[in-house]
């Protein structure tokens, strides 16, 4: 079965990626799952300086979902390269480093720093909902989104995936803008902001008040945005949002995703990526198909 897919210059053995922020730096999962079978590992977002993140509580479970407000806690790019990248390199799978800047220049700086062997691609996180208060995300404006991508494009020859926010009026115009600015692919969706309240204390459950909603609860929204994005651009789309099973992943592939990312499900079952992969292979066999490319975008109805 040919499970390989191509995203930009990056050839993946299979279309299963683990989503940023849900898999740490992979070392945390090394004793519990077979890392080299995963198509690509996306790291937790890395920033220029270390970030301590948001005050706790940072998590609240909702019906079939999870609100999180971690706030990009990470050790910064220098420590990442020194202490985390060597292990990631040794996993034998493609490594995609997620980067998050506060300014356009910071994104460019991070991309330059990561122009190093062992990094297969960069995912530009311009859509984290938990770091900017009362302020627009880079991903919420086509001009700022494009300016980040342009700056990163100038700094690296590596494959660039730009991660967009679902919290926009028209994802298509943002998607077209980042495509034009030189992004090799688009990943959708980042989490959707939500709130949960403790009725006993009459206060929000999260110290940050809002948190990004992930998990099965957001899957239909994610599928809709993948569909819209795929119709708007010709670069590959990577689908994320509530994938728990192989059939969830197949829905994303049918809606035009060239690859999928598994996020919250890693918390439920650290081996989920391998189960999803196996399930897709079985599905393709049952349908008498020769590879995963046969189903990518199959559900899209030509207008």
């Amino acid at each position: 079965m040919d499970m390989s897919v191509k995203i930009g210059k990056m050839k993946l053995a299979n279309p299963i990626m683990v989503a940023s922020g849900t898999f740490g730096y992979a070392e945390e999962f090394k004793n519990i799952t077979d890392l080299k079978q995963i198509g690509a590992i996306i790291t937790k977002s890395i920033t220029v300086k270390p970030r301590q993140g948001n005050p706790p509580p940072r998590l609240w479970e909702t019906t079939a979902g999870l609100l999180n407000a971690i706030g990009l806690q990470n050790e910064g790019i220098d420590s990442f390269i020194k202490n985390r990248l060597p292990f990631l390199r040794s996993t034998g799978t493609s490594v995609i480093v997620s980067i998050a800047g506060e300014t356009v220049n910071e994104y460019a700086y991070l991309a330059e720093k990561l122009d190093t062997p062992g990094v297969s691609a960069l995912e530009i996180n311009i859509s984290c909902p938990n770091v900017k208060k009362d302020c627009r995300l880079f991903a919420q404006d086509k001009t700022t989104a494009a300016s980040v991508v342009k700056a990163v494009r100038k700094s690296t020859k590596k494959t660039i995936i730009t991660k967009l926010s679902p919290e926009v009026t028209d994802v298509c115009e943002i998607a077209r803008a980042v495509e034009k600015a030189g992004s090799d692919a688009i990943s959708v969706i980042n989490t959707i902001r939500g709130i949960a309240v403790d009725i006993n204390t009459q206060k929000p459950r999260l110290a940050n008040i809002t948190g990004g909603l992930s998990g099965p609860a957001i899957k239909p929204i994610a599928l809709r945005i993948v569909w819209e994005t795929k119709e708007a651009v010709s670069i590959p789309v990577v689908g994320i949002g509530g994938i728990m099973t192989a059939s969830d992943a197949i829905e994303f592939l049918l809606c035009g995703s060239s690859a999928v990312q598994i996020g919250t499900a890693n918390f439920v079952n650290p081996k989920v990526s391998l189960l999803v992969l196996k399930g897709i292979e079985n599905y393709l066999k049952q349908k008498n198909l020769s590879g995963v490319k046969d189903i990518i975008g199959k559900a899209l109805i030509k207008k």
């Binding site: 922020g21 849900t22 898999f23 740490g24 730096y25 945390e28 999962f29 519990i32 937790k44 993140g53 706790p56 940072r58 998590l59 999870l66 999180n68 971690i70 806690q73 890693n266 918390f267 650290p270």
Partner: peptide, 11 residues
């Protein structure tokens, strides 16, 4: 979240 030290949710 993960229980494995990856997600930074339980700090």
């Amino acid at each position: 979240g993960c229980g494995l030290g990856a997600c930074m949710g339980c700090v």
